[in-house]
Design a protein around this nucleic acid. Sequence first.
DNA 1: AAAAACATGAGGGGCACG
DNA 2: CGTGCCCCTCATGTTTTT
Length: 620
Amino acid sequence: MRDQSLVFGEWLSIFHFCAWAAQRFVFCKAERLKMGGDDSGMESDDFDWNSEDDREIENFQSSSRLSVPNGDAVTGSGEASSSPGSSNSKVLDHFVAMGFSQEMVSKVIQEYGEENEAKILEELLSYSALESSPQPQQQIEPDPSSSEYAGSSWDDLSDADISSSSDEYGKVVSENVVTLRSLVKMGYKQNEALVALERLGPNSSLEELVDFIYAAQKAKAEDTLLPPEEKLQYNDYKSNKRRFYELEVLGRKKPRGCEKKIICEDDEEALHLPNPMIGFGVPTESDFITHRSLPDDAVGPPYFYYENVALAPKGVWQTISRFLYDVQPEFVDSKYFCAAARKRGYIHNLPIENRFPLLPLPPRTIHEAFPLTRKWWPSWDPRTKLNCLQTCIGSARLTDRIRKAIENYDGDPPESVQKYVLDQCRKWNLVWVGRNKVAPLECDEVETLLGFPRNHTRGGGISRTDRYKSLGNSFQVDTVAYHLSVLKEMYPNGINLLSLFSGIGGAEVALHRLGIPLKNVVSVEKSEVNRNIVRSWWEQTNQKGNLIDMEDVQQLDGERLEQLISTCGGFDLIVGGSPCNNLAGSNRVSRDGLEGKESSLFFDYFRILDLVKNLTTKYR
DNA sequence: AAAAACATGAGGGGCACG
DNA sequence: CGTGCCCCTCATGTTTTT
């Protein structure tokens, strides 16, 4: 049972969210006018996002689909108290205009005074939540993790600095509140509404928000969460293609006799990881898929290529896939390309015929990759592949402990010691470098395993710790290059690349090693050392093209993109592996899923991709 | 001040077995 | 089908060392 204080707490967090969103989203009317001006059929597809232009804010009010009836009444929290005499009816009118009952508003104003609109809003929201929530029992989460899930991220949000008291701030708050209220009135949970509004922006239409929530529900919901009639609405979704994918690509056998379970047959089903994890095929295995059909919306140009960890929390890949035009992910383990495992999912709209690998093929066992370890490798260590290369390495003291644990014995150590050593070796990816001596991989060894040139991340003031971190967050170049290889014959004169979350430039290196000329590369990467690494590589490899680097994907708005596109002549490929922090299993602290602090930047990948797609089709 | 070392499991998939 | 066991995971926050 959910008690009232909990509900109220959630509404509190909603308010904090609104404040946070007000800061985060600055509205972009100019873009909408520009794009919608020629009426080129982009009504509900044009997402409006950040812009820092003030005049755009001015225009926001009139353009909003979910308009505030009386904008003038919406004042910043600081202003309301300045003229108490006349503001009583004004404040009351304002909240009534937002859709609250006059009775309720005056009651709350009586109780709390009218000088603190924020407080009034809180109260109104909590009251109306209790009153109008259509199916309160439905908000009981059978899955206890779900509420925690959202809870932690909202805590983050409420920590956000909400000192802004500008006018647009007030508008944004009320705008969001109205939208949220509408959604809750429609029967959606606050959490879902919040997430949707956060992702799509306050300017988005109700339809878009509802659509988003559907997607999220589909990804998350268990059978028991939703009443059957609501779920039936999802069932027209892709059943044929999904089935084809499961049968043909994932090698999945559809068990007979489950026709009864119509409801959960397709969408509710968890995405199955292929075994072996070879996607549409890898150079070293005979199993291949040579054809797939893409959803119409996904067909390029431009081509896009998205990457993230395969073992994300449940529902994440379904959501990602749904945003990326329903293209099904290709799950590939890089252990088929090199000596280290790296299970990743890739969503792209590239052709998959006539792929070819980078040559020479890298060694695919530890012994081949590190011949010197063979001499010291004990017979009781059966590993032939390394585990996933992560962002941290084992410490020197750990390897010392292991040495001491072993050297007490003449022959093979007892099984318990073997177990301990093996566990540690697997956990930290240690290799044998001497008698009773294990060691973590060196930076340059990691570089080689991942397909980068040696010393790619070396120098320029980067610490060893940070090198491991940057490398651990990177692509495996051979794997990505194999997928991108189909571009070579399509673009003999080179490509224009938009590289988001570039990191140390895995995509750039892959294309370069494929022999695909890079004409213009726009590289967006937050970390300065990483940008330096890419810049340095760019100069060392005598690139003929032009490298433009930027810091923040969130600053890449429609205006900026249009500029870039007009100077570059359009992007042929948009690559991005968005942050996995909140998805990766190694994260004990904040594995919050796609809504996590960093991983939610996926939605910026989608936003930018969608913008480029629209701009590309528009100008061609 | 910066770099390195350390402490901190949950969550799922795969598999064998009954 | 369920259950138990094995295994793996693009990490974060704090403390210690350099």
